[in-house]
Every structure is written in structure tokens, then in C-alpha cells.
Write a protein that binds this DNA or RNA. Structure first.
Lengths: 111, 111
DNA sequence: TTGCTTCATCGACTATCGTCGATTATCGAT
DNA sequence: ATCGATAATCGACGATAGTCGATGAAGCAA
């Protein structure tokens, strides 16, 4: 394998970036930390009430977080219950992973 | 202290986000990993040659990384030598930090 | 069925971001 | 002082992303 020349392959760099992009927004950070505080799943309405942004905006961010498997959804009746994905939290790449050229964790791509 | 109601304070969320934003771009990931591979400082010209994007673009990204203290600069003659900041790499927040509401590391704000 | 509630999706607007080419500033050497 | 090399800054462009209001879709109850 050619790992001597140049930087990371572009593809690997993009995959890494897609991880960090998921947490590169203040609203998403709030949503994630909110879901973590309440250990129990939350409906979209609850998240909207607690986060102070519009319902469509929350839905949008939840979709982004769900695409990366950072949160998990479970439809219950007329409402969607979201909870954070502990497994995804622990496999989230660190800066050291990037710097050491470790293989990129899988979840973001397995959408 | 009020840590029961609502999500993270907006300010803390923004500081967290500013960390992740720094690595939320494939080109910056490449630059960082490139600087880490070569243990020795690199000039902008070398980084340009290895990263395949324009000189002004590289300079722009280096500035972003330097603002967050992720890389350190040292002017030497007519060229600027960049190297990664190991200290900043190790204090880079993890997803677990966000989820557990840990205090945001300092460097990004100390610009 | 008709309503009501909850959420996802759509369309539009704005702001931010990444990229480039060109210009400017700084340093060294002649 | 002038020239050449290196890198930072500027201005502009296109693309992406965050937000909102409005609309649409799915479920439940009457």
C-alpha cells in the first residue's frame, strides 16, 4: 500500500470530514447534548421546545445526525422518538486518529 | 449552577462547534495529516505541492488551523514553517465530551 | 369520514464557506 | 535600490448549509 507519498487519500479525508461536519454546528451540539442529558428518548416536539429553534430546523438537524447514526429514531404512534447512539459516540474519531492516519470509522458511510 | 434545564448554553455549543469546524473540511484534514506524517515543519510551498490545491487556498486553511492553535507557525526567512500542535491534538474534544457536557477546551477561544 | 396532532418535506432566502486569480507585503540576495 | 521568491491578503464567484414558513403525510380519536 502506498502510504508514504502525499497526504491522506482524498476519499479518506472526506469521510473523516463527514464525521466532524456532523458536530460542526452549534444547534446540533445542543441537540446531541440535550438527548444525552435526558437518558430517555425524546420526541421532536420536546426537542423543539428545549432548543429554541423552529420545528423544521430541528427536524433537519435530526436527519443529519441520524444519517451519521449519531442518533437513532423510533416511530411511536404519531411521534418520532430520538435517542443518542452510544456506540457511535464512542467510535467518533479523535484528532489523534486523523493525525495518525488511523482508518476511518464506518458508521457515517453506511447510510 | 443551572445545568438541569435545556441543552448546553448556546455559547458553549458554539465553542464546541468551532473545534469541530476546524476539521470539518477534507482539505484541512489532508493538511493536518500531512503535517503529522512529516514530523518536521513544512513550508507553505511544500504543502501546496503535496495537497493539490492553490497556494491562496492552502494559506487560507492554514490560517483557520492556526487560529484554533491546531498548527503552529514559525517564520523563517521568507517562508513560514508550519507544524502541528501536539498539545492541541490531545485536548481536541471527543464526542463523549460533548455528550457528557464536559467543559469546552480552551485553545479555540484564545485567539 | 372528518378532524387534530405530530413530524417530515418542500421552497425560498440568507449567510457562510471553499476555491481561485491577482495583488500586496516581506525577506534575502545581488 | 532593485529583483526574485515566498506567503498573506483581497475580491469575486459558485456551492453549500442553516433557518424559516408553509405544505404534505401518517397516525389516532371522535
Amino acid at each position: 500500500m502506498d502510504m508514504e507519498k502525499g497526504p491522506l487519500e482524498r476519499a479518506a479525508a472526506e469521510e473523516y470530514a463527514s464525521w466532524f461536519k456532523a458536530l460542526a454546528d452549534a444547534t446540533r451540539i445542543q441537540i446531541v447534548s440535550l438527548l444525552a442529558r435526558r437518558r430517555t428518548p425524546m420526541s421532536v416536539g420536546e426537542i423543539v421546545a428545549a432548543s429554541g429553534v423552529g420545528q423544521s430546523t430541528v427536524s433537519h438537524h435530526l436527519k443529519i445526525l441520524a444519517d451519521v447514526r449519531f442518533v437513532l429514531v423510533e416511530r411511536q404512534g404519531t411521534s418520532s422518538l430520538y435517542r443518542i447512539n452510544e456506540a457511535c459516540v464512542s467510535c467518533f474519531p479523535t484528532a489523534a486518529d486523523v493525525v495518525m492516519g488511523n482508518p476511518v470509522p464506518a458508521p457515517p458511510t453506511c447510510e
